[in-house]
Amino acid sequence: MNTVTTNPVLRLSNVAKTFVTPNGSVRALDPVSLDIRQGEFISIIGPSGCGKSTLMNIVGGLLDDYDGEVQVDGVPVRGCHKEIGMVFQEESTFPWRTAIDNVAFPMEATGVPREERLSRAKDLLRLVGLDGFEQRFPSELSGGMRQRIAIARTLAFKPRILLMDEPFAALDEQTRLLLGDKVLQIQQELNQTTMLITHNIAEAVQLSDRVLIMTFRPGRIKQVIDIELPRPRSSKLMGGEKFGHYVAAIWEDLREEATRGLLEMEGARSGS
């Protein structure tokens, strides 16, 4: 495992979460501890129901009621933090705003002058490969384009840490690969610290410096795999021997958890 030389930009110490429901309490997350360096790209991969979205919501500040501590630059945070930006799995563009107004939204909310925010939004749209689509409404664009708008919108307020919760889950495989390339390119250009939640192994290998494998519920980190593939990367890596080796290694670890998850989910379904 990599030794952390600089101070981590994001640190999780024993972060855990138990949901209390009318049918009793459910342990969603066992204590998770994790350090992320500036500019690092990590992926968290695990079977459905491993608490990876819970973890993301805790780090993003959407869930307040948890155990443990989240630190940004060594300072404990509760609630949403201006250094942390989130990209959601669901379609999250504002249908009443054009592409450029969607991207300009965070700047508008914080009072950046109109000229400046529009020119920055234009640059960001170019960065995600959407120049020429500034005045289109989301309903006129494809799912992949809308997700790129959402990514550009999140980048617009210059968060140092980018959290992405299965941002490509609703997209087809080819769009997903191309969008992955785009995200890599942006991440490398901006040296953005990124935490990606995914259930797609190839995607995790393609994008990450480190892949964290989580167990089935209650989620905890089972294994950390360093991806030592040269950068800059792209989806062209996928044919390589090393790439295949990493995918196989991750699946080896993940298989057991996924099987357990599947059995438990099916058990719960037939039991109810």
Binding site: G60, G61, L62, G79, C80, H81, K82, I84, G85, M86, F88, E90, E91, S92, F94, W96, F105, P106, E108, A109, T110, R153, T154, F157
Partner: peptide, 23 residues
Amino acid sequence: VLLNVGRALNLSARKQFWMIQFP
């Protein structure tokens, strides 16, 4: 998820309403 976009940006309750929820 639209409301979460605003929450992640730390919008005030007023902006959250007039900029996201109402439209």
